[in-house]
Amino acid sequence: MNVIECKDVTKNYKRKKALNSISFQIEENKITGLVGRNGAGKTTLLKIIAGYMKEDSGELQVFGESPFNNLMASANTIFIHDQMEFSPALNLKEIFEAAENFYEKWDRERSFRLLHYFSLDPKQYYKRLSKGMKSTFNMIFGLSANCTLTIFDEPTTGMDAAVRKDFYRALLKDYLDNPRTIILSSHHLNEIEDLIEDLLLIKDGKELLYMPIADLKEWAIAVIGKSNVVNEWIGNKEMIHSKDMVQDQVYVVVRNDFSKVELEKAYKAGIKFSPVSSTDLCVYLTSKTKGGIDDVFS
């Protein structure tokens, strides 16, 4: 079953196109990583999924309904982001008690155990927390709500390395206990790549790549060798990234869909191959120019 169906969704802000006809479906009980550069449209997309905003055109459905102004969708969705607001009149314990009335599957025991583990005082007020502690509290709130659709937008901003590690571990353990649909957005693919099942990479408000993360590492490959030899061998394939190295050598990233004959030919010509890490590949795919920052200085 698909929890989210997104078809040709477009959203414009005053001077900028935030989403540009984006389409994808997210299946039930999967952890999906949403990755893209700043300004790629990640937060806009998540806000529409969570029902905070309405798309300009196209169609977005969550649990088979439009999430905007929809009580069923909002009772079953939790959206954690760094601009969360909680009532200034309530302390952390009281915030949890209020949440328990709204979220049917709220896990009270786990919420307080997590609060204790991360040394947050239940009597404290949210606005008095430091930035990192706010993120930690938001994360606990998101996990405890136990919602069918759980969305974390850049959840680890401001957290120190130890809390970050604990968060990902907590998320995984919680997911193993209660499988549910989770969307996790991050700039740091390397942090989440072991945790997610699918990767949705977006660029300029459009989906660029949507595949199981397991397949990503075999999707592209780096080719290294003398520039004329490499260029001849690549032919008219699209270069995802290319970089000049010392002594007329080049490093070129291309799709990994060569035939066995082509590969043997390359070996004989002295061309070397090297795997590309998921993080690097995403940077190459989402960069504006093929050579990255080097192009500015050339």
Binding site: I31, R169, L172, K173, L176, D194, E197, I213
Partner: peptide, 17 residues
């Protein structure tokens, strides 16, 4: 797959694969 996910801190679908 769930034990592997827990031991190795990875997604259970990856472990299943």
């Amino acid at each position: 797959q769930y034990q592997l996910a827990e031991i190795l801190n990875i997604n259970p679908a990856t472990a299943a694969k």
